[in-house]
Design a binder for these strands. Structure first.
Lengths: 124, 124
DNA sequence: CTCAGACATTGACATCTGTCGATATTGACA
DNA sequence: TGTCAATATCGACAGATGTCAATGTCTGAG
């Protein structure tokens, strides 16, 4: 096929398009980053993370968290599971109580990716 | 009613609770922050933001964005509206074309709030 | 004025998400 | 072993969300 010899210019007329200066985020990276952001994008979960960070040693048990957020115990447990699945907190069951702690650096990784891909003129 | 004289200790037995070292994020701040994070928490919108950031001058028109993300034009327009409403990008219609540009500092404000409230031992 | 093209809006639909009540599971203790 | 308390899981429900086809709106060209 000699079709590849044809100039497929499609003649847009030199219109609106501005030139690219670098590559955008990949589909795969966007999906992964959005999954962590989805875990963060809820008022209850933000409060839970903040409460955990505010406790001594950056860890807290469910009984510390249920009352301040004003939600039922199953709902709090559900939100904490979402945060664990997103890799933002860890769960450590000691006896009857479950202690949740921040994962060091997890949030930094998110903000770093945001800055890398979503800031004008950011190179690496 | 003399009920308030009763010691309502509820005797939890001095159990699991760790002490607070500072105040957590307020409900109001959590709602506001989560709204911006919801706008970010979508693969298509992350790619749109990244594409805009990758264009010269950190701005791009819809015709630059529809094809790379692989979605229909109304869907892209919808996502861009979400980003505008969240204060992450601006819309500037010049003639027939609509140019979308990053809002400088908008992303920094988000990451700064995350670091302030969600990092262990972060003071202010 | 009419037409064509770029973009926004609408309406509809399937799917995802947050919430709760009810129930199951687990560990401490008598 | 049996009971109690802390937490997780299940089932159900209302509301939010992402997507597209169809249509509307606006601008520039002729």
């Amino acid at each position: 096929m000699a079709l590849d010899l044809l100039p497929v210019v499609s003649a847009t007329g030199g219109a609106c398009c501005t030139p690219l200066t670098r590559d955008a985020i990949t589909e795969q990276a966007a999906v992964g980053l959005s999954q962590v952001l989805k875990a963060l994008a809820d008022p209850a979960r933000l409060r839970l993370l903040s409460l955990i960070a505010s406790h001594d040693g950056a860890e807290a048990c469910v009984c510390d968290l249920t009352e301040p957020v004003g939600l039922s115990q199953p709902t709090v447990s559900h939100h904490l599971k979402v945060l664990v699945d997103a890799g933002l907190v860890t769960r450590d069951k000691r006896g009857v109580w479950a202690y949740y702690a921040l994962v060091p650096g997890a949030l930094d990784a998110v903000t770093h990716q945001l800055g890398t891909h979503l800031t004008a003129g950011a190179a690496s």
